[in-house]
């Protein structure tokens, strides 16, 4: 499959384009559908909007030895949790044939191949945030507004109000009071960080892990710059001295 192929005909009333947007990989570490359901449910509860409608590929590498799997049930569980399964990969031949009959074709896209799966179960791991484009916003971000820096970092040089939402696939920098929500590493980049000069956020989140205002440590307001990062699956908030 090429990254982009185009089938065009003068008389055709449509174009076929292939274009692979980043896609979430759900790697099954063991085959336990009950646990899958409860874990997904818990994840969605914590971050209701993260995966809303995201396409996912089910990676079967760790369960390929197990023989036939219940793909109907698996599909239902994902759909019920706002994820849209679009295919499988790395399964046994038998499993992949089986999956295809349930509308889950074998897809070999995505960067992960056998063996190099990241520790963060459902996400791909990258050592550096992909900062293709940095988005700069220099006007206040008010209640009800949402800014998303896709594939990159977000830099805000104005206040962020309560009720506003910042999202970035990479880091988030706020040079001004941060009173709304800041969600870095939206696509699962655990190395993403949040930097701000005054932390009064309602919520901060990195790669799906989050802290609400109540859970944040009280910081001395005169402290210089604050950084928020992920360490051993826990969110850390520290001043940069």
């Amino acid at each position: 499959m090429t990254a982009s192929s185009l089938l065009m005909d003068k008389q055709a009333c449509f174009l076929l384009k292939t274009n692979f947007a980043p896609c979430t990989i759900l790697q099954l570490t063991r085959y336990d559908l009950t646990q899958l359901e409860s874990q997904l449910h818990a994840t969605i509860q914590r971050t209701p909007h993260f995966f809303m409608g995201s396409p996912v590929i089910i990676d079967l590498e760790k369960v390929r030895q197990l023989g036939p799997l219940n793909f109907t049930k698996m599909k239902d569980i994902l759909l019920a949790n706002q994820l849209v399964p679009i295919g499988v990969r790395n399964g046994s031949e038998e499993q992949q044939c089986d999956a295809a009959t349930y509308g889950l074709p074998t897809l070999t896209i995505g960067r992960l191949s056998h063996g190099e799966t990241g520790s963060h179960s459902s996400q791909k791991k990258e050592t550096h945030p992909r900062t293709h484009q940095t988005k700069l916003v220099s006007t206040p971000i008010r209640s009800g507004m949402q800014v998303y820096a896709k594939d990159g970092d977000l830099v805000v040089t104005a206040p962020v109000s309560v009720g506003a939402e910042l999202l970035a696939d990479g880091h988030i920098h706020v040079y001004g009071p941060l009173r709304g929500r800041a969600i870095a590493g939206v696509q699962g980049n655990t190395d993403a960080r949040i930097f701000c000069s005054l932390l009064e956020a309602e919520l901060v989140s990195i790669a799906g892990y989050y802290l609400t205002k109540e859970e944040m440590p009280l910081l001395d307001k005169t402290q210089s710059v604050i950084q928020i990062f992920l360490e051993k699956e826990k969110i850390k908030i520290e001043p940069i001295l």
Binding site: T139, P140, I141, R142, S143, G144, M145, S161, V162, G163, A164
Partner: peptide, 11 residues
Amino acid sequence: RDSDRMLGLLS
């Protein structure tokens, strides 16, 4: 809070 929202719409 509502004024803040309004300012967002104004911009």
